[in-house]
Nucleic acid binder design. Sequence first.
DNA 1: CACATAACGTCAACCCTGTTGGCATAAGCT
DNA 2: AGCTTATGCCAACAGGGTTGACGTTATGTG
Lengths: 243, 243
Amino acid sequence: MAKKVVQEGERRRRRRTKQGLVLSHDLIIETALRLLREHGAQGLTARRLGLALGADPSTVYRYFDGMDDLILALADELMGRAVSGWSTTGDWRRDLRELGLRIHATYLAHPQAAVLTAARVSGRSQEIAADEAILGLLRGAGFPDPSAVRIYHAFIDQALAFAALDAATLTLPEPALRADRTIWRATYARLPERTHPNITAVADLLAGQMNSSAFPVALDLLLASAAADLASAAPGGRAGGGG
Amino acid sequence: MAKKVVQEGERRRRRRTKQGLVLSHDLIIETALRLLREHGAQGLTARRLGLALGADPSTVYRYFDGMDDLILALADELMGRAVSGWSTTGDWRRDLRELGLRIHATYLAHPQAAVLTAARVSGRSQEIAADEAILGLLRGAGFPDPSAVRIYHAFIDQALAFAALDAATLTLPEPALRADRTIWRATYARLPERTHPNITAVADLLAGQMNSSAFPVALDLLLASAAADLASAAPGGRAGGGG
DNA sequence: CACATAACGTCAACCCTGTTGGCATAAGCT
DNA sequence: AGCTTATGCCAACAGGGTTGACGTTATGTG
């Protein structure tokens, strides 16, 4: 029902003089992003958004078809920011690593959007632009199309999956239940060595590592594997980019 | 507040004759798993759980400290099922692949638990048992401890992250917004070739692949990378398992 | 200018969620 | 018996998303 609003209401600048503020898609998106940034994943609710806008919560529904539609629009805005200012260095592996870290970091700050972005086809411009860039890097590096698509799929979903997971970890309400170094040590160092020889042997390494995200490690492993594939397929070096 | 219940109430078998049914931790867990299995991620709520138990929703709070505590117990039960009946074949890479697929599939059927499992340290037995098994495989294969921990971390979090992501994809309410092959074709095949040359070039491959989970691909890439690391560190073959 | 119409904002309500405190009863212990 | 603990239910609270009715404002048209 808000679709006509999207098409025609965009260029008209109306002024609410007595009833309240002037709302717009951009203002709502901006405010929603601010809420996510300042209060985390749980900070964005219909009611809080209305409050932050100085408007009634239901007003948002004049501009978006429910919260899912808003979050989808949010996701596209985020993807645009994740890849904005990006340019290739000529090294596909380095570029992909940078791109992956950017996407992960961006969606980490705004978690709910990651799931929706990976789960749905929004058909929005920024997401498609990112897809095009990633595929271009892989195909330009010389990957044959099936491999490029395969790696692209794993790459983008891995970035989004870890972003969603890491965000969920960070936004847990009770820090007592969160995995911090102390708890890890207390839990794993006390295991009997006979029943858990491997854990006790590496308990210190575990304690030092399990708090940080595993995403960079997984990303590097993925890229290393891809590079090995490429090297074995075309040992001479990089093949010329197609069409 | 329910902790004493956990300790002492376990062995006593009481019978509620007039007020209602006999509840127990096991019965609640079983019912919760059934709800997740039958109605998906959104099927498990405090109120639905009470309804399925034939009891008041608040009764559950006599046995668990809130829904988070219940889900944590659920996660441990799931991890136990994921690795139950598993035994090594002597091939660490094959074993890890099997284990990863099992964990992913199990948590895929019961999604919320994946996030909590990865995010928190429950210190529960089944999770620790799985950790011990994975670390044992890696260290037994000859990985030095830092590498073993690094790969273990990426391995387990990747399985859980993809499970959470894939589950979120599957449980989306509106199929119209879900990514099925038709929508992918319609969205990506119509892009202008000039602005999106790479996407249009591989549109068919994309359409055939983006519906399935990227987890098996990502898992294989991770394992291949680990195997390459191991081979380059100890070229002669497998090193003997450390103490 | 006046009028009709669409856009926009608010209010109150509905149904869902997790959670808590008070109260009643059954079970176990002394 | 009595006393304590363990349950279970009921009603309520705070907070989610969403909707429909209603009034006001802005725009388009004569």
